[in-house]
Amino acid sequence: MSIFVLAAGAARADEPVMISLTIKDHQFEPAEVHAPAGKPIALSVKNLGAIASEFESDALHVEKVIAPGGEAVVHVRPLAPGRYNFFDDFHHATQGFLVVP
């Protein structure tokens, strides 16, 4: 089951929309997040697992190693509507989506 995180619409045009997610037991929580189109996004990813993760997405142009217990913020530029995949490059079964309606 996926939980939908609706970003606050009040954010200004150049102010990034903050979205938080965690990695635990090789799962993104939530596994699907939503963000508005045309706005910069800041994804805060917390690794609650015992093993390092490499948060990566080819579509979002991000790649960042997150130590166990660590937290990383990745910046994503304004997006066109679509369904953008991200994953843990150290554990490919760990998959998630950023949905821009």
């Binding site: 697992g49 015992a50 093993i51 390092a52 490499e54 190693v65 130590a67 166990p68 150290f90």
Partner: peptide, 14 residues
């Protein structure tokens, strides 16, 4: 190498 070390360290710790 830093990715390998970090990954293996985590596996070992787990």
């Amino acid at each position: 190498g830093s990715e390998v070390v970090l990954f293996l360290y985590g596996v070992a710790a787990a």
